[in-house]
């Protein structure tokens, strides 16, 4: 692999959100937003993507930290994953997010990597990352979805020409917690529910989120709705560190005695967006939180899954994770 310099880019280091928004508006799609770069540098070093200019956001103090706001908490997009893993308030109320952040990559990547960058990272489909001209890169074929395509990591739901999956561990937790994304641009602010923030290939095959050029994710809001709920997070990967999920689950349960009164179940790495199990959530309402309910839920969860040549294992894996989440490991 190349160990030379990245190709030249102009570097902008705004120190306020206003300055960043202004730059993002003026540079448009020529301005690469850079948080900690743990995803970005791969693209730039490999020359699979190029940019004229980089807007480096880590000097903006206003985009960092966890604060309590009316009705919940707000996490600055530039807050590091380590901070999210360790933050006492998050651990107390929204442990699910801390657990997910703590399972990302490696300690060093968590020390640098930001929540915003983790949520906005591009897919890991290796054909695409290798720089081939697949659909997602603007071409007219999918290299993963072919008889000999290496698609062990790819989707079992929601494929539409592209079969890549959403790689972010925190995305599933943010969706499970009914979070929303605060987005700023020169046009002002908009707030998008996390469940609508991520986009699949049917909607837009070229990007992973609704963010338009010129838009900056400034914060993630988590409402009090699920504060202190019963949480379950499990991520299955080939290695315990440094590896993306093969399948993961982020779950939250509200209990009424020993019955589940409400729940959120979000499965990771099976679709291009966090895969929420809405039908399962309604089906287990009022049921006991036990093995039996888990088994029933697992079966329901995998309905409609479509496999490729090398990812059939994701179906039993997902079924088991749903069962384990419900019975509590």
């Amino acid at each position: 692999m190349a160990k030379d310099m990245m190709p030249h880019f102009d570097l902008y280091q705004p120190d306020s959100v206003e300055a960043a928004v202004d730059l993002a508006a003026r540079l448009g799609s020529d301005g690469w937003l850079l948080a900690a770069g743990q995803d970005s540098y791969d693209w730039l070093k490999n020359r699979t993507k190029r940019t004229e200019a980089v807007i480096e956001l880590t000097g903006i103090a206003a985009l960092k930290g966890v604060r309590e706001v009316a009705g919940g908490i707000e996490i600055g997009a530039l807050t590091t994953l380590t901070e999210i893993e360790e933050h006492p308030l998050l651990r107390e109320k929204f442990l699910l997010l801390s657990l997910a952040a703590g399972r990302v990559a490696s300690p060093q990547i968590r020390n640098a990597g930001t929540l915003g960058g983790n949520l906005c990272q591009d897919t890991r489909c290796w054909y695409y990352r290798y720089g081939v001209d697949c659909y997602r890169a603007g071409g007219n074929m999918c290299y993963a979805d072919t008889p000999e395509g290496q698609n062990r990591e790819h989707a079992i739901f929601g494929a539409s020409r592209c079969v890549a999956v959403q790689p972010s561990d925190t995305a599933n937790a943010v969706v499970a917690l009914d979070g929303s994304m605060v987005i700023r641009s020169a046009k002002g602010e908009r707030v998008v529910p996390a469940s609508e923030f991520f986009v699949g290939p049917a909607l837009n095959i070229r990007r992973m989120t609704v963010l338009e050029p010129g838009e900056i994710l400034t914060a993630v809001r988590i409402p009090s709705t699920w504060a202190g709920a019963k949480f379950y997070f499990e991520k299955i990967a080939d290695r315990a560190a440094w590896d993306f999920a093969l399948v993961s689950i982020a779950a939250a349960f509200k209990m009424d005695g020993d019955r589940i009164s409400d729940s959120r179940l979000v499965v990771g790495a099976v679709e291009c967006v966090p895969h929420r199990l809405t039908a399962v959530e309604s089906a287990i309402k009022g049921s006991a939180k036990n093995e039996e309910t888990g088994t029933r839920a697992g079966k329901l969860a995998i309905e409609g899954a479509t496999t490729l040549n090398f990812n059939q294992f994701k179906i039993p894996l997902m079924e088991n994770l749903v069962r384990r989440a419900i019975r509590g490991a």
């Binding site: 102009d10 902008y12 280091q13 705004p14 300055a19 730059l23 540079l27 004229e52 000097g59």
Partner: peptide, 20 residues
């Protein structure tokens, strides 16, 4: 010099030829 954008000179004219 493109490098001079370093440092948050946000109001600079953004377009100019980058020189090797």
């Amino acid at each position: 010099s493109a490098s001079f954008m370093v440092g948050g000179l946000a109001a600079c004219t953004p377009r100019r030829a980058a020189v090797a």
